[in-house]
Design a protein around this nucleic acid. Sequence first.
DNA 1: TTGAAAGCGCTAACAC
DNA 2: GTGTTAGCGCTTTCAA
Lengths: 350, 350
Amino acid sequence: MSRDRSAKPPTPTLEHVAKVAGVSRATVSRVINGIRNVDPQLRETVEAAVAATGYVPNHAARSLVTRRTGSIALIVSEAEERTWDDPFLGRIFTDPYFGRMVSGILGVLRPHAVNLVLMLVENDEARTQLVRYLRQGHVDGVILISTHNEDPLPQLLTESGMPAVLSRRPSQSIPISYVEAAQHTGAIMAADHLVARGCTRVATITGPLDRSASLDRLAGFREGMARHGYAYVPSVEGNFTQESGERAMEQLLAEHPKVDGIFAANDLMAQGALLVLHDHGLRVPEDVAVIGFDDNSSAQHCRPPLTTIRQPLEDMAGEMAKLLLTHIEDPEHQVTSVIFDTELLVRRSA
Amino acid sequence: MSRDRSAKPPTPTLEHVAKVAGVSRATVSRVINGIRNVDPQLRETVEAAVAATGYVPNHAARSLVTRRTGSIALIVSEAEERTWDDPFLGRIFTDPYFGRMVSGILGVLRPHAVNLVLMLVENDEARTQLVRYLRQGHVDGVILISTHNEDPLPQLLTESGMPAVLSRRPSQSIPISYVEAAQHTGAIMAADHLVARGCTRVATITGPLDRSASLDRLAGFREGMARHGYAYVPSVEGNFTQESGERAMEQLLAEHPKVDGIFAANDLMAQGALLVLHDHGLRVPEDVAVIGFDDNSSAQHCRPPLTTIRQPLEDMAGEMAKLLLTHIEDPEHQVTSVIFDTELLVRRSA
DNA sequence: TTGAAAGCGCTAACAC
DNA sequence: GTGTTAGCGCTTTCAA
């Protein structure tokens, strides 16, 4: 008797429900899965039995036969552990970039009752573990946020045959679906805007140059400036954090004291630049105009509000999720890429 | 023949490996799971067969019999959708708080090869979906980051019998393990420090007052000030974002122009206050001393660097993960709570 | 130490 | 429209 205290009532199974409803397991299964061919009468009986028993289908059992898990992985992959004072996680989670992506993904996943498994890959060991995890069939597909161009993961995923969508253009010509913003065009708009404002001594703070996004923005900006007759644009490399923006701005100021226009490859670095310019008693935009990239929420709240190139990250992430769902639904679906427009948002800083 | 192109080699199963190794499924299973009683000779044969076939155990099948998934959920729960210009996700992912937690959790989970499923719950529908998800057995346990005091989730989790650890003291006396920082003590240290600096007209910017963390910090600060003879401390409520800190600081300045000390209930709001004070031409700390709470990485990089009360979030999160693992291992393990010390970090702002 | 066999809970043919 | 049945791939007694 006293042993009853710890004896939990066994989780009800299809079998139990079937018994209660006086039908076969198959019928209950049909009702649960909303398959048409069921007598409305019976359906009600079954539903009552489900409610009465508090039945919930067992995920593992279902997954074993359907070969579906109802989960997808969001993988954030960094090719190498970086050595700077640059903790991977701190960077990931402090940049609004990540939150905006998750937001967009969850928005499209939730109505499909698909869950998100978050995985961080920052070294070889983690990558090995990841590949194993995927092969074990924990998830139906993968959204890969991969920064470093040399990242082997896009290739590995493609080989594994797991449905996957990449957050950028693959560096080699790997047949994998991806979503991207028009980086190049955006950067050209930045150049045009600075020149139109009358800036003549312009410099840029780039992102890490092992990433195509950084490279594209730099190339676009250089091309834009070149079109206006500025063949040379000084640049300093940052790492997309605010502090790196500060360091870069200090360096730029030391090397080019008369700089009057800055294009930073993301908003966080632009905000760092803003702080340093202020430290030096320089007015923005009067003395130096500053333009960022992303359009984070914080861009509206800095001093002064930041002119920036907006990329619609939420929409892009949502599109990644949709694409992935399509690939999961139809494994033969052809590899697809979607490019989103970027947009110049003029606020006060430039 | 041509059909072979799309015919993937079937994923190897235990059966295949057994056949290749010339042993029974059971033996292979033992080798895979590292069970001792296996002839070293045979073990090697089996391992070779595993390597040859590229075998990886099927998660669903294993999970079906072991009743373990090797995953835990990190649930971020907000009781109600907020109406301010306060997008849930933006807030979550922009505050370094979240990244620090994930970092701490992953640090202890990874060696155990346990995965993290991220789930966001911001309304009733999502909560219902969540409960269902948990009952389906997708995960072995739950780390719940719950802010709002009225959140029904701690109660629901407890009732469900699912192993769980909460990120704060439960508001009702719910038997659930939790981890917390010494909020009250930390806030008292803030008061002591401001008074010791010579501040005599002190105010505070609180967090949302439906959260115990906010309440504790406010109560602690008031108690600390009272001990020094300040019975009344003006306060304005923020929502833990930088912008709310700005709004609060503006309001405080309007109502109490001579304020000379501010305790903000987190670093983000403190940074907002810093900006507004600067806008008003007030020097920090000469005219107004400012002290925050958390010790985010950004606290070191603002102007001036922020004096703050540090809570060891990474360690706290790691402890939550450890506790959860313990509960999963031993379902009879008693409910436990761990309180971490907070610490005053003096930088320039106070 | 190893193998045979039962069965975890479910879906999906297939027959009725 | 409904029930019967055969697995999905694995772990785990139980015998040998």
